[in-house]
Computed example of a mutant assay.
Amino acid sequence: MSNLLLCSNASIRDAFTVVDMNDLSDVFVVDDDNRLVGAVSEQDLRRGLLNGVSLDDPIAPLVRPWRATASQAADRAAVLDLMRALGVRNIPVVDSGNRVVGLHVERRIIGVPKLPNWAVIMAGGRGTRLAPLTDTIPKPMLTVAGRPILERLVLHLVGSGVEKIFLSVNYLANVIEKHFGDGGHLGCSIEYLREDPDLPLGTGGALRLLGDLGYRAEHPLLVMNGDLVTNFSVGKLLETHRREQALATIATSRYRHEVPFGVLKSDRNRLTQIVEKPTQEWPVNAGIYTLDPVLLDRIPADQEFPITNLFEDCLRRGEKVALWPLSDDWQDIGRPNELAQARGQ
């Protein structure tokens, strides 16, 4: 980041160098502790030259306040939406002390550590429960807050440092492939695991197709359903998987059910307690996983294979499957009411 930030006494020449070397429209100015002071735009720099300043003059008189910042936990899609709304091409990432630690630009994010882990997003389902919405649009391409659900997932992974993403496609695959291409415009590399339309592979079978493309994962693999709206912490999930030394880690959400009656507790047919409309809660599968690469060899070829079969196999072998409770927003989009909820309707 140090080569992207300038202090107030830097020269206009220095600012042009930062702009040209990094393809930026704005240069951010910080104090000695890296706290954000303001910014100077390329347009401001050129206007200054036309008004008679020299390349060796300091940029201080041209620096203007900059209010649009993002936190380190900010969702990449939300930041891009903010950039579009404000008509800017860059937004700095600041910590709790207003120190600049990263930078969002249109096609990349700077300052976020890159992860060696690949991600696979399952995006091939038919989405029959959401028909007729899914008659011409794949379920993961339905929009929430103006963006396809699948795009939000991809941007979230990119914002977390994931650079290599595989999309498992089947139903209306051409719609997804046309939208995402090679992923370059989103700041990542995307390839496709293409199922045979007549042979759906389920929630786990498509992982076997990685080998067909000649790929062999060397690090734990992130796997998730393509119909989720979530800002889960990729780093915390991977850290839990490493710390627990598990072969697989399942992210869990919470399911709550309220009994709509008064529950009667008894002992030998004698009433001991009345509990009015009690609520029970259980951990449930959130459709987000981390898998050790060795597990991919256990997935049968050319047949439907639920990913949960993989976890059951681990249990039969006495191998560790860890659970990681989600503390972030999470919404599954499988039914009309869930889609409406995610859309705030």
Results as ranks from 00 to 15, higher is better:
1 M>F: 02
3 N>F: 01
4 L>D: 02
5 L>W: 01
6 L>E: 04
7 C>D: 05
10 A>I: 03
14 D>L: 04
17 T>S: 11
18 V>G: 01
24 L>V: 02
25 S>Q: 09
26 D>N: 09
34 N>P: 00
41 S>W: 05
50 L>K: 12
53 V>I: 15
54 S>D: 12
56 D>P: 00
57 D>E: 14
59 I>C: 06
59 I>G: 04
60 A>H: 08
62 L>K: 05
63 V>E: 02
67 R>K: 13
67 R>I: 10
71 S>E: 09
77 A>K: 10
79 V>W: 07
81 D>H: 07
81 D>A: 14
83 M>F: 10
84 R>D: 08
85 A>M: 13
85 A>P: 02
86 L>N: 06
98 N>L: 11
101 V>S: 03
105 V>R: 12
113 P>E: 07
117 N>G: 13
118 W>K: 12
121 I>H: 04
124 G>F: 00
125 G>F: 09
129 R>T: 12
130 L>E: 05
130 L>R: 02
137 I>F: 01
141 M>S: 05
148 P>M: 09
150 L>Y: 07
152 R>F: 05
157 L>V: 10
164 K>H: 14
167 L>N: 06
170 N>L: 09
171 Y>D: 10
174 N>A: 04
176 I>A: 03
179 H>Y: 15
181 G>R: 12
182 D>H: 13
185 H>F: 13
192 Y>G: 06
192 Y>T: 08
194 R>P: 00
196 D>F: 02
196 D>C: 01
198 D>T: 11
198 D>Y: 04
201 L>D: 01
202 G>N: 02
202 G>H: 03
202 G>W: 03
203 T>H: 00
206 A>C: 07
209 L>G: 07
210 L>W: 05
211 G>V: 00
211 G>C: 00
213 L>P: 02
215 Y>W: 08
215 Y>Q: 06
227 D>A: 08
228 L>N: 07
229 V>P: 03
229 V>I: 15
234 V>D: 04
239 E>Q: 14
240 T>W: 01
242 R>P: 03
246 A>P: 04
246 A>Y: 02
251 A>F: 04
256 R>H: 13
256 R>S: 14
259 V>W: 08
260 P>S: 05
264 L>Y: 07
266 S>K: 13
272 T>V: 15
273 Q>E: 15
279 T>K: 12
279 T>S: 14
282 W>H: 10
283 P>A: 10
284 V>F: 10
289 Y>C: 07
290 T>V: 15
291 L>Y: 11
292 D>Q: 11
292 D>V: 06
293 P>D: 05
298 R>P: 00
299 I>C: 04
303 Q>N: 02
303 Q>D: 00
305 F>N: 04
306 P>C: 13
309 N>F: 13
310 L>F: 08
311 F>S: 08
313 D>F: 07
314 C>I: 10
316 R>G: 00
318 G>Y: 07
319 E>H: 12
319 E>A: 13
321 V>N: 05
323 L>E: 14
325 P>R: 06
325 P>Q: 06
326 L>A: 09
329 D>Q: 14
333 I>A: 05
333 I>C: 05
335 R>T: 13
337 N>P: 01
337 N>G: 03
340 A>M: 12
